[in-house]
Design a protein around this nucleic acid. Structure first.
Lengths: 213, 213
DNA sequence: GTCTATAATCAGATAGAC
DNA sequence: GTCTATCTGATTATAGAC
């Protein structure tokens, strides 16, 4: 048995295990964040869902806020990947205009929310708000996403497809807000519509408004 | 000094004081509920804001949930009064059509939210949700409001002013959701617009949609 | 009914053995 | 790094004097 060779291999393996564990943690946090929100989620629940002791969680993340931040960053990165996909190659056929891209992204976020994978933003004065604002990885990802979406909005307005009287930032905020819109839960609870129908309804109210056209 | 006459007068006075105190409490709760939400609000804060001891609060309301329920019922009653005003006399000139009434009510709720008087609904799994659903006064008020608004929505659709393809209940939920829309806070934080402008923007996105017309 | 003081509980975080 | 057991602080709720 060689004495030197196994070292880096073993190290890499351990690192992989570490990362795999952390991915499992953020996935659990993401799900619980979507289901109950930050305040109602307890660290004990996270530990139970991952299947490790609470103390072990704190070896990976220094606080409950750090836990949630990591999950939010992960979610943000998934959004970035989806956005990149919309900007490149094949997707051009499906989403050729700026408006089509905005709509595709919005529908994707609605689907995430309906399937319980969209961590609900801290809509009120939560301790999470401050932590997120102080988190470089999160803010960087948010800025990047906002910049791309901002250009899409401006382009869609220039192309006459989005109401040019609306401040672009207001359009942006509106799209962000739709990703955590309680209307989706309400309609799902009523059990009168399929997920597809619910998405169609919310997409219609968002882009076409309540008024008849 | 008569021995019998003062009795009912004194009782009535004490009752008035009691009710006045409880109104003061619900007002404070309402404000804190709007500012921080149910979970972040503590009973100590409520007591401090009202200016009485915490134990005294529990003489009026049996739990934190009961406290919040009372505030929500009070808010609901204010909404009912506004709705009744829209249906009667003078307001007919300002809000003659069903759509105009829906818009007037929506703008009113946006104004409440902007001035920090709209208690934010428990959007996630809060203990408040269950308490509200179990509260007869709250559910009764909610049902009454929903019934009236429901007729307005159907009428507005029949008059060709609201998109007839949308299920009326979806329109209703959408209007409820706009009353606690985070877009309002986001725009207010950006400090680029006055409250009036913010209301105009949100009203436009809500009723006319993001798309150009 | 209001107060001070305290009980009871729960959740975030840590100590220390392995 | 993971565990069990524990600490600490915050928060809901109550006891008991006045």
């Amino acid at each position: 048995m060689p004495l030197n060779a196994p070292e880096p291999v073993k190290k890499s393996f351990k690192l992989q295990m570490l990362q795999a564990r952390e991915v499992a943690i953020t996935r659990a946090v993401n799900r619980l964040l979507a289901e109950k929100g930050f305040d109602a989620m307890t660290v004990d629940e996270v530990a139970a869902e991952v299947g490790i002791a609470k103390a072990s969680l704190y070896k990976h993340f220094s606080s409950k806020e750090a836990l949630a931040c990591a999950a939010m960053v992960q979610a943000m990165q998934r959004a970035q990947e989806f956005i990149c996909g919309l900007e490149s190659g094949d997707a051009q056929l499906l989403a050729s205009t700026a408006l089509a891209k905005l709509q595709a992204l919005t529908r994707w976020t609605l689907g995430l929310k309906l399937s319980g994978q969209m961590p609900s933003l801290p809509s009120q004065n939560s301790s999470l708000r401050a932590s997120l604002m102080a988190s470089r990885p999160y803010m960087d990802a948010l800025m990047q996403v906002s910049e791309i979406l901002g250009t899409w909005v401006v382009k869609a307005q220039a192309e006459g497809q989005v109401n040019p009287n609306l401040p672009p930032v207001a359009v942006l905020y509106t799209l962000y807000a739709r990703a955590c819109d309680p209307v989706l839960e309400f309609l799902k609870m009523s059990q009168l519509h399929t997920d597809e129908e619910i998405m169609d309804i919310v997409m219609a109210t968002c882009f076409e408004g309540l008024n008849a056209r």
